[in-house]
Simulated scan of single mutants.
Amino acid sequence: MSLNISVIVPLKNEEESLPELAAWIDRVMRENKFTYEVWMIDDGSTDSSWQVIQQLGAENPGIKGIKFQRNYGKSAALNEGFAAAKGDVVITMDADLQDSPDEIPELYRMIVEDGYDLVSGWKKKRYDNAFTKNLPSKLYNYTTTRMSGVKLHDMNCGLKSYRRKVVKSIEVYGEMHRYIPVIAKWNGFRNIGEKVVEHRARKYGTSKFGLERFINGFLDLATIMFIGKFGKRPMHFFGALGTLFFLLGFIIAGYLSLAKIFYDKYNMTDRPIFFLALLAMIIGSQLFLTGFIGELVTRNASERNTYLVEARLDNAQ
């Protein structure tokens, strides 16, 4: 019998909230007659979270867990959860009770009935600190939307639902969990929806995220944008830039050479622009060689010719 829903809960030091969260999820699932599993991914907790997960699993076979030996981050926890999930619809949520399991039925319906590949929650009314979380979050969402073309109000909301094929087709690492909708889009899953969800005040513990997430988030966005466009053809990026720089330097050097020939009074090496031309040609050559190296790495990568195929028609007899 197939599972309707897999719930993935990444966590670190959430021993107090886990029993309440597990009971809440179980109640919602029973009321809606869903078959389900819950994967609680312990990301290097230093409290008794794992012992709590083991106890919950003994009481309810639907509660399952993975414990990391050390803290790897939310992306790693989600990636392991995606690999383990067996449900037709996969739902992610945080363990701190700020995400409401009461949203699960509608998130499930939007995937199964409305045909979305991914539905992201939108915490329209938040209970976070306006200066440290709300304003940076708005700036982050605006920048990501402009760069990626994925129009969501709350890209980083932990409460999301996915068609099973989506989570089996993407890989998240570093801090890239913030950009899962962007990664899904680059993998061909363009039917991305949004749902206003309840955001609850934190009941136990404190936030596990610091200010460094903003710097890491920007760097990961740049990585995703580059890999999405040029991951299988790096020469198109580095080669184009290298050619542009080299031509710029070559044109400047040509101009200086003609000036030297026809106006003898100019000494090429006495002019600052000569060194600019030289620098441009050197940078251009380096970028071009980087493109070649990137192509060599790509051609020897195990996934160099791995592509997601949505459908296949084969009438061969």
Rank of each mutant, 00 (worst) to 15 (best):
K123R: 15
L78M: 05
T35D: 09
L18P: 06
D43I: 05
R178E: 10
E194M: 15
F274P: 00
A58W: 03
G291C: 03
D270G: 10
L211R: 15
A201R: 15
K203L: 15
D99M: 07
F131L: 10
A316Q: 14
A240M: 10
G291D: 02
F230P: 01
D264G: 08
K168T: 14
P272M: 05
K138L: 14
L289A: 14
F238A: 04
V89M: 02
W24Q: 05
N216F: 11
G193T: 06
W39V: 02
A58Q: 11
K64S: 10
I111S: 03
T132H: 05
F218G: 09
L21T: 02
Y266C: 03
G193L: 01
E198R: 15
G284M: 02
F288Y: 15
L256N: 00
V166K: 09
K33T: 10
N191F: 06
T46S: 10
W39E: 00
V309W: 08
D117W: 06
L221H: 00
F214E: 14
G73C: 03
L276Q: 08
V119K: 00
L279D: 08
R304D: 10
P101D: 04
E310I: 12
Q69E: 13
G158P: 02
G205F: 04
G242W: 04
N156S: 11
R30I: 12
A222Y: 05
A22T: 14
N300F: 11
F245K: 09
I293F: 11
R27D: 12
K12A: 12
W50G: 04
I273A: 04
L258N: 05
G158R: 00
Q317S: 14
V167Y: 00
K165S: 13
Q69F: 09
P61D: 05
A83K: 10
V28Y: 04
Y263K: 11
E175L: 13
F246N: 14
L278F: 11
A201S: 13
A76D: 07
N60R: 10
F218L: 14
E194W: 06
L313P: 06
F209Y: 14
I104P: 06
T269K: 12
G228A: 06
F250R: 09
E37Y: 05
A58N: 08
G205P: 04
K67I: 11
G62F: 06
V150K: 08
L296Y: 10
L11E: 08
G44R: 01
R213V: 07
L289C: 05
N300V: 11
K232Y: 09
R109K: 15
Q317D: 13
H153N: 12
D42E: 04
Y173K: 15
G193P: 03
I170N: 00
E31G: 05
Y140G: 07
P101Y: 01
F250V: 10
D154E: 03
H153R: 11
M147G: 07
S161F: 02
Q55E: 13
F68W: 04
M110W: 06
M1N: 08
S45H: 09
I224L: 08
Q286D: 11
K74T: 13
I215R: 14
R312W: 09
L276V: 15
R200Q: 14
A259S: 08
